[in-house]
Design a protein around this nucleic acid. Sequence first.
DNA 1: CGCCAACTTGATGGCTGTCAAGTCAGGTGG
DNA 2: CCACCTGACTTGACAGCCATCAAGTTGGCG
Lengths: 245, 245
Amino acid sequence: MHGIQPTTALNLAALRGVCGNCSMRELCLPVGLDQDEIATLDRLISTRRTYRRGDSLYRAGDSFNSLYAVRRGFFKTFILHEDGREQVTGFQMTGEILGMDAISTDAHACDAMALEDSEVCEVPFTELERLSGEIPALQRHFHKTLSREIVRDQGLMLLLGSMRAEERLAAFLLNFSQRFGDRGYSRSEFNLRMTREDIGSYLGMKLETVSRTLSKFQEEGVIEVHGKSIRLLDFARLKTITTCR
Amino acid sequence: MHGIQPTTALNLAALRGVCGNCSMRELCLPVGLDQDEIATLDRLISTRRTYRRGDSLYRAGDSFNSLYAVRRGFFKTFILHEDGREQVTGFQMTGEILGMDAISTDAHACDAMALEDSEVCEVPFTELERLSGEIPALQRHFHKTLSREIVRDQGLMLLLGSMRAEERLAAFLLNFSQRFGDRGYSRSEFNLRMTREDIGSYLGMKLETVSRTLSKFQEEGVIEVHGKSIRLLDFARLKTITTCR
DNA sequence: CGCCAACTTGATGGCTGTCAAGTCAGGTGG
DNA sequence: CCACCTGACTTGACAGCCATCAAGTTGGCG
């Protein structure tokens, strides 16, 4: 039968572990773990699944079992208000963790959708908790990950609560520049995977305002825009815009 | 010398523990713990300190050592932007936990200030982590607490990103009504401890707009306002306002 | 009793939402 | 291969919500 006698190559890969080879191990859950600990974490990851653009990873109300680490691709999370309004709460890139909001109620509080073809590592939460009780470094890192999400959200609250449209968009572009850079891509040239409407929802403005503001930045020579493709030309000015008043 | 021979009464109180008697034990860290576990948690709480109105519990940049549970009183947390703008990120009532944002960087990300005379229980974080590795119920509850903060923040993002002034304020009033009710106080009559400016910062609007909107609600017979004292008269209408369009 | 911060209320203007029309780009089917 | 179609995007005109500026009132505290 298939699978009972895996090839040597596969066997080796399994032994060496997948987290240990993952290019995102410096950004993801294995941060700060030694080889043995990574191997233990690795065994815990039951499934790696791929998603097509537009697929749901989970929906609000789904029962909570696992966290998900983005191995490849790009996601958005969003809350649907009763009256149909949608608020995008985040965009998740490679190495980032999805589903932490579900721990509190054992049910997902938001929807997560792939914005491009993606792959995620599923981390069963009960086992992650058990393991983090045994590996202090994992526990510490997991707590930091939860806390980082809180800080991120509060940064967005600052943005939504006290910035104007230009400031919000400039901060948004710099944030993506930073995150692409952290992953080894260009800080000055990248493709936004989401629509103007998604950006607008995330930043608390309408898609027309997003479009207009991008055009304005382009006229001023701060950026270059071709659809979803963005090139940042003047970082200093962008930085200035985020703190203009 | 003082303190070496404490009175019997004090001794008894110490033995029975303070968390076990605290009226907030159903809302605070001890949730779901048995008697022994509460006693263990109790020994971990090194200090209980009081703060006067206006005192800082911690400031952004302070090194992180402990979480704080509000035992009595009322706090606000806020971020100061470089240019001086202040964004209030939360109001904390009895039984709620402060400082979780600091775990990620080992430094506090925001300021916390007492809005009335208050008392907090200091929970040394390293010891809390060690203990939560030993007591699964505590670990689970702590994770839920962190996650609940994430959900709370995302709810505020929805509010800031996609609601109009009246909707925000109605949601704000209902949220406080709920939280006062949870603590055994009236759901329909309470005192707001913060200024209009604090409310405005939290809700992403100017203090004048807060004042005007409260007046409008009063004219419409939905609430009664006398300075910081609020009485909710028409819950159904308030609920309607939060989902008006 | 007086002071000052907090609050209320009014007038005005600007940012951004809304509505509308047209353009662009990518994917599908003939 | 090209035409078409649809969703995404851009741009313009206008309006409305809320910020801003200003003046006056209230209330708590020394």
